[in-house]
Design a protein around this nucleic acid. Structure first.
Lengths: 350, 350
DNA sequence: ATGAAAGCGCTAACAT
DNA sequence: ATGTTAGCGCTTTCAT
């Protein structure tokens, strides 16, 4: 149906009905200017009675503010399988960010990968962007940078150490928490399984692992599995690890890899946690539902979303120079790293 | 930083640089009017060289088209825990819809519940809406209706039988598929566990269950658990069902309920599928990861998103009178309803 | 084949 | 305390 017909009342309609000028309407509704309280009230009443809502585009055109921010949806491909890791984290973040932006009366626009294809009409008019896990030399970041659009990132930009508008977990600290926990639980040697995406998470966790090995005098055992290979990739690496000689523990960054690796090894008769401890750097349904449940680092998604949106708002307001925001990952201690637990605890999924 | 500085080139800048009028630029870029191919090419070249992108708001103001649609985020509360069911379906749909809208060069805006709080600035300017599972007398639908904004719904609007712009699974048919499967697998009596939200899914599945019982001469056994009670609610209903006398099968609409019910009953010594068949109407990580995996109806989310977006585009273009789109849910036959399967199949998670 | 000019609905100087 | 007016950047008649 033609929107023209139904298109809501304009500021003119309100002005006419209230018997004032459009300026008065604008000022009344926006709490600006010098308007008598009586008039202000009357205008407000008329406006709300008419269901008047200022046209976002007209307003935006004038103030060059869209009142909406974008959330970049990198690599749609990887979402193709809608696995718990791809979608889970990203989409939960989208939900939490939407809640967060609503509080500030901003819209949240999902923008699937800006770096390929024609730009969606709105993409360059948005007030700011949240970029999820930029990788090395990310073209999306380059585009935003070139156009001077404010943005913050989840995880630091691995190629740009001076860019400081990011929010992330303290990956180095989290990694040490895990490794120390594993060592304390009796793991003599710990194998590490990272992903292949060139993002800060992979880089920093691996670096922390290597540093920790150096400090504790252990021999690093590093494996890489492409994120997209998911559980199956995990199974394969599990087999490889077994082939290379069973370690005391395995730390898989990705939840799906952890689940796959544990699965494959259990099928070979390895008992978890009896023979081997397993832990993941990213909690997901896979780690929660695995038998036994797999210990994991957990992203506090609402906190992350809140921090990202808040920081972005600061940047949009021109504030700069703040430090990056480091969140603490929660460590969820579960059965997979608890040798010697009773049957009862096991049953409760702990 | 002040956007003014960085604000991209305007149509004027392009016109000046190309030595033509803004009309020529507009026409060249939009393939309208009578412009010589030479000029058109030159303008295009200049524009792309300058990285010119038409301002979405200015364009929208003129054409009163936003080129973006909204996806209503009903009841954020229920997403509060970001459990696999809330997020799973809704967020996957958001992702798929974003991909789908991108193909049409439309933006997708996440709009958290229009019915409470102040309207987000954009919400009333969007070209159309996808409303996810409207419930009876849904205020969001009422608002959209009042303002004449085109919308489609996922699942029919239970209170408005004449509204036909919806996409959903054929719940009646799907329910029968499940019940027949359960009966064929040897279930003499089948208990049904539905949710309490007043949406079409709950209504239609239950109606189909009752009808099927009537036809087959079975006594209906109906239980209700609030969606938000999740796995714990499932555990409780599992206990209740056991208390009322164990049936041959349980059909839980919600995946989390199914998982909880199965869990509680298994802890009481019930063997699945040996003593009892369990099936859910909504596949999720919970049903997939349960031991044994729980048979489920599965939403083809990309198909649903595609259908929703396509239908919405039709509605926005003024086409009307099309029939609702009925999708077929896939039935995923798993171990929980396969009595007498071999050990091997069991191992493969089938 | 090209350009001038009128708005779209709003905000913010600038009158009054 | 209220009103007039000039644009924001664009599309679209209507001239030329």
């Amino acid at each position: 149906m033609a929107r023209e017909l139904q298109h809501g009342a304009t500021i003119w309609d309100v002005a006419r009905k209230a018997g004032v000028s459009i300026t008065t309407v604008s000022h009344s509704l926006n709490g600006k200017g010098n308007i008598s309280e009586a008039t202000r009230e009357r205008v407000r009443a008329v406006a709300s009675e008419m269901g008047y809502v200022a046209d976002a585009m007209a307003r935006g055109l004038r103030s060059s503010k869209m009142n909406a921010i974008g959330l970049v949806f990198r690599s749609l491909d990887s979402l193709g399988n809608y696995g718990p890791n791809g979608v889970d984290v990203f989409m939960k973040l989208a939900g939490a960010a939407a809640a967060e932006t609503l509080n500030r009366n901003l819209g949240l626009m999902l923008v699937p990968d800006l770096s390929r294809g024609p730009l969606p009409p709105f993409s360059m008019s948005l007030d700011g962007y949240i970029v999820f896990a930029p990788h090395l030399d990310d073209p999306v970041v380059a585009l935003l940078e070139k156009r001077g659009i404010p943005y913050v990132t989840w995880d630091r930009d691995p190629g740009r150490p001076d860019f400081r508008n990011w929010v992330a977990h303290d990956d180095a600290a989290s990694t040490r928490v895990v490794l120390n926990h594993l060592a304390a639980a009796g793991a003599g040697s710990i194998a590490y399984v990272g992903g292949t995406d060139r993002n800060a998470w992979n880089f920093d966790c691996e670096a922390a692992y290597v540093a920790w090995c150096l400090e504790t005098g252990k021999e690093p055992r590093i494996y890489h599995v492409p994120e997209r290979d998911g559980v199956e990739g995990g199974r394969q690496v599990g087999a490889r690890i077994l082939g290379d000689g069973m370690p005391g523990a395995v730390f898989c960054l990705t939840g799906r890899h952890a689940s796959g690796a544990a699965q494959a090894m259990q099928e070979c008769g390895v008992r978890i946690p009896g023979d081997l401890l397993v832990c993941t750097g990213s909690d997901s349904e896979h780690s929660r539902q695995h038998k036994p449940p797999i210990s994991a680092l957990d992203v506090d998604i609402p906190a992350a979303a809140a921090a990202l949106v808040e920081r972005l708002c600061e940047v949009m307001e021109g504030k700069s120079g703040s430090d990056p925001v480091l969140l603490v990952a929660r460590f969820l201690h579960r059965k997979s790293t608890s040798p010697g637990k009773t049957r009862n605890q096991q049953k409760r999924g702990f």
